[in-house]
Amino acid sequence: MKKNVLHIILFFTFAALSGGLLFYTSQSVQRAEDELYNIQVSVLKEKEAIHALKAEWAFLNSPARLEALALEYLDLVPPDVGQIISDASSLFESVPVLQDSFIEENFHEISSSELKIEKEAFSSVFVTPRKKPIRKNAVIKKRFDTILNEIIAGGVE
């Protein structure tokens, strides 16, 4: 008798449990499928949007349009063949460069006569200036803190 009741209780518990489990599983499958579908739909929408944007990008970048816009709004013109050179070294005369380390090590040891010889050797490159620049109405740059001090002192309007 007792054994029977126990059996029945066990049976119903088991049935309820497995039913619940089945329900849970089917629910999660359904939810996952919904999610999958939504994702696929949004991926497709996204792909279509990218596709349309690519077409728009190609349209906006079409050479005729870019050329017209550049000529209208930029101070740029298409490069001329004359602006292309085959060899960069042909542009400037190469200037001999004294190594920093050499100068520091030998600074005191180079006599003025040696320097003079060196300058003469490179006279084609180094031009000796003869005059100082003349500046009319030259504005002498002031440091900011001096200006500030002047303002505080009331020296400047």
Partner: peptide, 14 residues
């Protein structure tokens, strides 16, 4: 509208 469950149905591909 996308919440309707289309089990086993794939969205139309491109």
């Amino acid at each position: 509208d996308t919440s309707i469950s289309y089990a086993y149905s794939e969205p139309v591909g491109d």
